[in-house]
Write a protein that binds this DNA or RNA. Structure first.
Length: 574
DNA sequence: GCCGTTTTCGGCCCGACTGTTTTCAGTCG
């Protein structure tokens, strides 16, 4: 992935320039470029070959040349020069929360600190006292930062963050002094992983709210406790930030606190051009200081000439431009979904009988579900033999009579064998309403082989959906090596949908990949891969990915009615 | 280093909290 390589290089340059005390705007330019590269859905090398690198926002003449150098030589001489100039152990210090460029440089210059451990020893030995600005608290701060760094400050999955957010919201909600409360930050934007939980509250009595917040049962440690802003760390080590504002400022604060940072910067600079200034308290006329908006997000956007923008889009990924042209997508919503496509029962490795799951799915207001137990070669997950599959078919037929008008589609999650053949013969697949294909073995195949394998499966006329297309498990397993662009193209050409698997550790495809797939014309299917009933709720996690991918109802299989869906399946079968 | 419905030069988003400081620098988001 050349774009990640380039992004990392630019971030490193930004760190190094920061240590040199360079022009902050130059540093920001490198960071902005790095971020835009990470969010890029197109292939960097193709863009470079076409001479279109400068189309990427934040990439101009200079950075475009640097990207080309990285692509063609695998190196970046400017970065190498900087690295020679600035010792690695100095940059390492900046990884400690609470230590920025100034402190890092100060400490390094004085003691030639070799490592974080060396720094820790110096602090504990009281050696840092006497440096300008160093007293007891500052030392404690650094030690705490080192501890945090060692704990790894991992990001949570969106699923974990959603649950934690709900818990805190629940604990605070009934306080009489709280008027409005909302989650903000990357959790509200629906990012696949979240580092900390941001909450926003309106109250006429902020102090009381703050006192209550830092005394919450889940609070393990108080990081900051101010009038309008406090932070705690839960016992599990998750940082939770709370901001309290006046009701008149709720909308502005929600925009500010939801971010992303890049989006906010665009918003503010747009405002500046209109003679306005935006902060978390509202939109103000620059000259008179008069507030023109602030209570609702809609007002804030309207004041700078834009329609309201959904939080999931706020990444400076083209949403500002789309808003200016009034071309924002009508994003898919829960109410658009008519069914769930990937459900297991206790016939394979699910926990519940078919009828119980079906009733739970129906209770959510869906019109249909696809039953998709595992196929025969996946013995470890109770994969069904041909005979068992036929029996299950009979059971589904019986149940459908009872559950009308709700409908269970008879399907299976059929393994794509290492050579690309399907785990059931075509004559059996033909009997199923809808077939999901999935890779569950030989994950380590080289890129070309894995791509060929999946392309072969997509070319099978009975395969309608490719499940968890990349196979990654957040924090556990890397995606298999795959030419995803090619897979998307073939999916689009053959009329096969790609799954957005909603399981909390999968989110596969993720937001960027789903946006790429949509761009290449592939249809998408949201499915929970439910094995136990509460996993049905994971649909909202996948929906967040879809919305972040600018997915509209038309892009999704789930929005089709039953007949429309069956016709869609038939079209590929020919 | 990027960028342009004021600009090819001169701007570039904005504020809270902490700690150490009598007015502010550093860090963070």
């Amino acid at each position: 992935m050349k774009k990640l390589e380039a992004a990392d290089s630019f971030d490193q340059i930004a760190d190094l320039l920061e240590l040199k005390g360079e022009n902050p705007f130059r540093i920001r330019a490198y960071r902005r470029a790095a971020m835009n590269l990470r969010n890029l859905t197109e292939d960097l090398e193709s863009l470079a070959a076409a001479g279109s690198l400068e189309k990427i926002p934040g990439i101009g003449k200079d950075l475009s040349a640097k990207i080309i150098e990285i692509i063609s030589t695998g190196r970046l001489s400017f970065l190498e020069r900087l690295k020679k100039e600035i010792p690695e152990s100095l940059t390492a210090l900046m990884a400690v929360p609470g230590i920025g460029p100034k402190t890092a440089k100060l400490v390094y210059d004085r003691f030639k600190v070799k490592s974080i451990e060396h720094l820790e020893a110096l602090v504990k030995g009281g050696k840092l006292q006497g440096l300008p600005g160093f007293k007891e608290k500052k030392e404690e701060n650094i030690l705490r930062g080192i501890r945090l760094l060692k704990e790894g400050q991992e990001r949570m999955t969106l699923g974990t963050a959603t649950a934690l957010g709900r818990e805190i919201l629940g604990a605070l909600k009934d306080s009489p002094e709280i008027r409005r409360i909302s989650v903000a930050g990357s959790l509200r934007r629906g990012k696949e992983t979240v580092r900390d939980i941001d909450l926003l509250i309106t109250s006429r009595n902020p102090k009381k709210v703050m006192d209550r917040f830092v005394q919450l049962k889940i609070a393990g440690q108080i990081q900051a406790h101010g009038e309008t802003k406090s932070s705690i760390r839960t016992r599990q080590g998750v940082q939770v930030d709370l901001r309290v504002v006046e009701p008149e400022a709720f909308g502005a604060a929600l925009v500010y606190f939801t971010g992303s940072k890049a989006h906010n910067i665009r918003i503010r600079s747009l405002a500046n051009r209109l003679g306005l200034t935006v902060n978390e308290y509202g939109v103000f006329r620059e000259k008179s200081g008069r507030r023109v908006a602030g209570r609702e997000e809609e007002e804030v956007y309207r004041a700078i000439g834009l329609p309201w923008i959904a939080p999931e889009l706020r990444e400076d990924g083209g949403e500002i431009e789309a808003a200016q042209k009034n071309r924002l997508p009508r994003l898919a919503e829960m109410k658009d979904l008519k069914g769930d496509f990937h459900i297991h029962s206790d016939w394979s490795d699910g926990q519940h009988p078919i009828e119980e799951v079906a009733r739970a799915v129906r209770a959510r207001g869906y019109r249909y579900m696809l039953l998709s137990d595992h196929s025969q070669s996946l013995r470890i997950a109770g994969g069904l033999t041909e005979k068992e599959l036929l029996e299950e078919m009979g059971e589904v037929r019986r149940l459908n009579k009872r559950l009308k008008p709700f409908h269970i589609l008879m399907g299976a999650e059929v393994d794509i064998l290492p050579d690309g053949r399907m785990d059931y013969p075509d004559r059996l697949l033909a009997k199923l309403d809808l077939v999901i294909a999935a890779v569950h073995s030989a994950f380590k195949q080289p890129r070309e082989q894995m791509t060929r394998r999946i392309v072969k499966a997509l070319s099978n006329r009975y395969v309608s959906i490719l499940a968890h297309p990349t196979g990654r498990l957040l924090g556990e397993r890397e995606p298999y090596d795959l030419d995803l662009e090619e897979v998307c193209r073939v999916a689009s050409r053959t009329g096969t949908a790609l799954e957005i698997n909603c399981y909390t550790q999968r989110l596969d495809l993720n937001d960027l990949q789903a946006r790429q797939a949509k761009g290449l014309g592939a249809r998408l299917a949201l499915s929970t891969d439910t094995h136990a009933l509460d996993q049905l709720n994971d649909i909202e996690l996948g929906l967040a990915m879809a919305r972040r991918a600018w997915v509209t109802p038309e892009d999704l299989l789930n929005t089709m009615g039953l007949n429309e869906l069956l016709n869609w399946v038939k079209r590929k079968r020919g």
